[in-house]
């Protein structure tokens, strides 16, 4: 059972999700994870190997949209919710760390 290094894996995952977890949260999550991974042992059973994965709840096929333009949002609505913007652009802090 792959539980060694779980703490490190949690740190990396939080980093990848752009989240800082407090030490308490890391501990709590580790405990939950051990619980889940233990309960998820059934995923190692052989019958699963031969099953196809289900990514969509049912097999309705997609519809294709005709290539006809529809109205975009007005600029004031586009920028209305932006935490930082000037009259035309969204603004982000420096890209380079």
């Amino acid at each position: 059972m792959k539980l060694i290094g779980l703490g490190e894996d949690i740190k990396q995952a939080a980093w990848d999700a752009r989240i800082n977890l407090s030490p308490e949260e890391e501990t709590a999550l580790e405990r939950q994870l051990q619980n889940i991974l233990r309960q998820a042992e059934f995923l190692k059973e052989n019958e699963i190997y031969n099953a196809e994965p289900t990514h969509y709840p049912y097999t309705q096929q997609n519809t294709l949209r005709e290539d006809n333009p529809s109205p975009s949002l007005p600029l004031d609505k586009v920028l209305e919710n932006a935490p930082e913007a000037n009259e035309i652009y969204f603004l982000v802090p420096r890209i380079v760390e």
Binding site: L91, P93, R94
Partner: peptide, 14 residues
């Protein structure tokens, strides 16, 4: 960017 990406204190997005 203002100037190049390395020095730009802020960047704008379109």
């Amino acid at each position: 960017h203002i100037g190049d990406i390395m020095s730009s204190p802020i960047s704008s997005v379109d």
